[in-house]
Write a protein that binds this DNA or RNA. Structure first.
Lengths: 123, 123
DNA sequence: CCTGGTCCTGGCCACCCGGCCAGTTTCGCA
DNA sequence: TGCGAAACTGGCCGGGTGGCCAGGACCAGG
């Protein structure tokens, strides 16, 4: 294998908070067996800390809306969703309409993108 | 400020490679000033290492297809994309068709989801 | 020179989507 | 015991979507 288990583990940092980044860099710089990545260098793992103020509001979606949303993210049509959930196409469209409303989206593609951005669903 | 610069930094791990996770946990466990998060505990930062085998192949998309894809991810309709790029709706549909083909998607929503999963676009 | 790839355009058509109207049941909460 | 929220269903319809056919222009490489 190309993996050398004696090699240093290379870590890259993606941290919004500069103070936190400095503290982490200082701490990790003294640990034997791992190393911070040089700019552009491929890292085995990345340490991420995003500004939490960006995504505080998780939208209030009902269970059924979450079901529909998940299938939408899989690219399923209203008809397929209806079959999958054992409900009529009209009901699916009803839930999709609610989702477009709550997610402030103009269409199902936009809805999935918004939901993914806000962490409501995982792609 | 609410930040206590003497407190430990809490890190959580999201690593697909179990061996790598073990090595990192062992290394970081002995570092004074930081600590690994308990399950469910809020962490100041997250160490992420996704299985690279999942997204090795960045699909070969033409520049125009990337343009169309980006606008699709914004929820734009074919008509809006056409206006935005200064081309006809037919041409947009042509590129969308190519995208559906290359991304192995059944529809525009699926295409955006696949593209996001493979890192072709950023939501 | 000719082939292949990309980009562009047109028409046609079945189907899907989203918004509108209307109604039902079930449930928990005041 | 009402009352609203959630879930579900129906019909209707304009516009959007995706698949198919066809074509032309441009440019790099064989």
């Amino acid at each position: 294998m190309s993996e050398d288990r004696t090699a240093e583990i290379v870590l890259s940092l993606e941290i919004d908070d500069a103070a936190l980044a400095d503290r982490l860099a200082a701490l990790l710089g003294n640990v034997a067996g791992l190393r911070l990545a040089a700019p552009g260098e491929h890292a085995a793992a990345t340490i991420i800390a995003r500004d939490p103020r960006i995504s505080p509001a998780d939208i209030a979606l009902t269970q059924r809306e979450l079901d529909v949303l998940a299938l939408m993210a899989e690219g399923a049509s209203n008809k397929m969703i209806a079959r999958q959930l054992g409900i009529s196409v009209h009901t699916v469209k009803f839930h999709v309409g609610s989702l477009l409303d709550k997610l402030d989206a103009t269409g199902r593609t936009d809805a999935v993108a918004h939901a993914a951005r806000r962490g409501v669903i995982e792609l």
